[in-house]
Structures are given as C-alpha cells and as structure tokens.
C-alpha cells in the first residue's frame, strides 16, 4: 500500500531531530496528536502542516530523526501527509517508529545532495529504488529486512496486528538473514 510513493521534495539539512519535528515545548502542552499537528516542524518550515500535500517526500541530510524517542514525530509526519523520508543517514529509534507507523524511510547518499525543493521524488520499495525524476537520477536502496517490508506493507505494525492477529515475531521463529 505504501510501498510506492511519489511526491514533491521538501529539502532539509543535516541533523533534523525529533525536537525539530515536534518540539517538547509544544508537545507537552497537548494531550492529543491532532492538537500537536500545527506545531509539526514549527521552528523549521512555517505552516508546514498546511502546505504539505499527500505523498510529499522529505529529503534530508545526515542524522535524520536524531534525539528523543517521541514516536509523535513519525506519527505527525504521516498524519500531515508525508509519504516518505529520504535521508543520508537515519537514527534508529526514529527509524523503528517510522516502520511501526508505516512511514517509509530510506537511506540514500546520492539523492539528497542533488535534490532541490519541489523536485519530484519517487520512492519504490518494491523495486528498491529512489529516484529524483526532476533530475533523472536514481539510486538503488539497500534491501530492507522482510520483517520491515511486511510491517510497512501492512501500513504499520498496528495494521499488521489487526490483520494477522499478532505481531510478526509470533509467526516467524527466526529473523536471521
């Protein structure tokens, strides 16, 4: 379902932390995710939550998702309509959170440096490629573990569990490659 995403690029630099995505000073004022949405990337891109279109892709530099474990960051990006994140490197807690909420996050060294705001980006987890269609440059992405593909394919781990009746590790004895 979310394995193939095409949209406009929003270009961010290195070190975009979960504090940048949803700052603690706003998060701890609100009880509901919906009420946090207007503060998504608040100090980074003004009115991002209004301007982002479904399927848009965040293209960032090194260390995306650094910092706090707050899953709200991944959830709010998805809630706003972000279709995928492409970054040079990604911090692990954010990565797991993104997988769990069904937000594709791919590591790419070639695409971020050449991408400009508004370029058309294709992320295709079936083919294993990320493409900047505006610049006609593509990169193969490292194949994802089947466990992760299964979760993203289901639309997140909640959807996976609702569909299969339990988390993936209930149905596989080993995940070794």
């Amino acid at each position: 379902m979310t394995l193939r995403v095409k949209g406009r690029a929003w270009v961010l630099g290195d070190g975009v932390s979960t504090d940048h995505i949803i700052s603690g000073k706003f998060k701890y004022q609100k009880a509901r995710l919906e009420d946090m949405l207007p503060y998504l990337l608040y100090d980074v891109i003004s009115d991002f939550y209004k301007r982002v279109r479904p399927g848009d892709v965040i293209v960032a530099g090194k260390g995306f998702g650094y910092g706090s474990s707050r899953e709200h960051a991944a959830r709010l990006l998805k809630m706003a309509g972000v279709g995928a994140v492409v970054a040079v490197s990604v911090h692990r807690i954010f990565y797991r959170n993104a997988v769990n909420v069904g937000l594709p996050v791919v590591v790419s060294t070639k695409i971020p440096p050449i991408t400009r705001e508004g370029d058309t980006i294709l992320v295709d987890l079936v083919e294993g490629i990320v493409v900047n269609e505006s610049k006609n440059i593509r990169e193969e992405i490292q194949s994802l573990h089947p466990l992760i593909v299964d979760i993203i394919k289901a639309g997140g781990i909640e959807e996976y569990i609702l569909k299969h009746g339990g988390p993936p590790w209930q149905f596989r004895s080993s995940f070794s490659k």
Binding site: S69, R70, E71, A74, I93, R96, N97, N100, V101, I157, E158, P167, W169, Q170
Partner: peptide
C-alpha cells in the same frame, strides 16, 4: 530506547 508502540508491544508480549 524505543518509541511508544515498540515499548507497548514489549510490555504486552514480553518480546
């Protein structure tokens, strides 16, 4: 560290 969902599933299943 884990996000809320991973921690929730660990709490419920022990894994």
């Amino acid at each position: 560290g884990f996000g809320s969902t991973d921690a929730a599933l660990a709490m419920a299943t022990g894994k």
